[in-house]
Design a protein around this nucleic acid. Structure first.
Lengths: 246, 246
DNA sequence: ACAAAAGTGTTATCGCTACACCCATGT
DNA sequence: ACATGGGTGTAGCGATAACACTTTTGT
């Protein structure tokens, strides 16, 4: 005789608790990767053009079903790696989506992850589908397949909050960057403007930037100092009551 | 012939893309409800004692498998309602957990939700398992079944951040409360102390509290004014650049 | 009278805002 | 010479922290 939820779970909350346990193991789980980059003062999203139905021709966020013997986080990292070749990239979970009818092929619960990649680390892969992958500006998103519009919006909201409290913005910058570039990045993410003098003072007062003794070159204005994010200094800051605060 | 992931998804990221689609629909999805209350200056967690293996005798956070035709959010609300009788309660998603081996009965991805309930709304249900449900202090958590320890910790971290930016603390208070009670609540959640004078000034300056013209009664000290959270006033505050801020 | 918590006022300080100004480079 | 962005100083304002003090109740 088949086990029921009551047998297995040891408790039950619904009137239908005598349902055979097998009925519940009919879900698929997918991960969707909101891969964000930063280029020319704009935050970019990596999208894939769909080659087949449903939503053929539309673009979607890269994602895949989680394998039966694969950790969910691993699946997200796999998708990212297969697409960009990148590993050990900042990635964090955003939200799970579990509407019954959200996917046409069946009951698929998806979990959104977003990762931040530095443009100078990313080399487009020469894979069979390189033609179908491209960056779009998050300020001008095209229509996306499935519920990806919502997933992306939520991830961007998440990012806006998190970027103020954790030093994740640096993931989007080259290793060496100027304060001006950093400011433009934060302005792009948060969709605001900062006073230059005040922004620098705030950032420098956190003492998490290290002065590389290098300068910008060949720019049509006074060259800026290049800084580097100092992880150790950040650890120290974390343990103060101020902490990182945009 | 059976469809494969390639047929269905329109793209593929792994070397194993010719796997029949059925292989992926073997997951179960569950919801776990971190139900938090507040009593006598302490934040409390509702736990259920498990009657069967695995983890028989241990306490766990209430949860259940999501039904094949049920929205995930609906499942979380169902668990809460069946357990407490409460509906329309503040509930928000915390995080999804997708480790392969996290559950002994099979591949179960779980999503943690937390809800905040006011002790004066909650009436324990006279159900068959009322004996097995009780509140524990979050400062003195007993060992929990499965990975519930982690799930609860993460939810509490989440709460700490969110409670500073959104007026969700009021969900844990009675409809009418004193500023002292409110202060104690925030101190309990955030595990800090506030200066009484400064706390009141900050809270009152937000103008989201309404003075009921009532007072505390039968207390062995000067009776305090009773306030009520004013949702409309909060909406107004939301649209200012200050907004709600602890 | 005393304890206990409510409730108020003051001061000093810190951080943030706004804005003015100078500097170095390429064209 | 000029445009462009880098880089700095300061004055004023507002929020916050620290602390002292008064008020009202029950015992």
């Amino acid at each position: 005789m088949s086990k029921t939820t009551e047998d297995v779970l040891g408790h039950q909350f619904s009137a239908f608790y005598k349902i055979p346990i097998e009925k519940f193991f009919q879900f698929a789980v997918s991960v969707d990767c909101i891969i964000l980059g930063y280029h020319e003062n704009n935050v970019k999203l990596l999208v894939v053009e769909r080659g087949t139905e449903p939503h053929k021709g539309k673009v979607a966020v890269p994602g895949d079903l989680v394998y039966p013997a694969e950790d969910m986080d691993a699946a997200a990292n796999r998708v990212l790696k297969d697409l960009t070749g990148l590993e050990n990239v900042y990635m964090t979970q955003s939200k799970a989506y579990g509407q019954v009818d959200r996917h046409p092929i069946g009951r698929v619960v998806t979990v959104g992850f977003y990762s931040l990649i530095s443009v100078d680390r990313y080399q487009p892969l020469a894979s069979s589908w390189a033609d179908n992958v491209y960056w779009v500006d998050v300020k001008e998103l095209p229509p996306l397949a499935f519920d990806h519009q919502t997933i992306v919006q939520n991830a961007l909201e998440d990012l806006k909050e998190r970027v103020k409290l954790q030093p994740i913005g640096f993931e989007l910058l080259p290793k060496k960057f100027t304060l001006g570039e950093m400011q433009k990045l934060y302005e792009a993410i948060l969709d605001t403007e900062f006073d230059k003098a005040n922004f620098r003072k705030k950032v420098l007062s956190m003492k998490i930037l290290e002065d590389t003794s290098e300068m910008q070159k060949s720019v049509a204005h006074r060259p800026a100092k290049l800084y580097r994010f100092n992880k150790e200094a950040y650890r120290a800051l974390e343990n103060t009551k101020e902490g990182f605060n945009l």
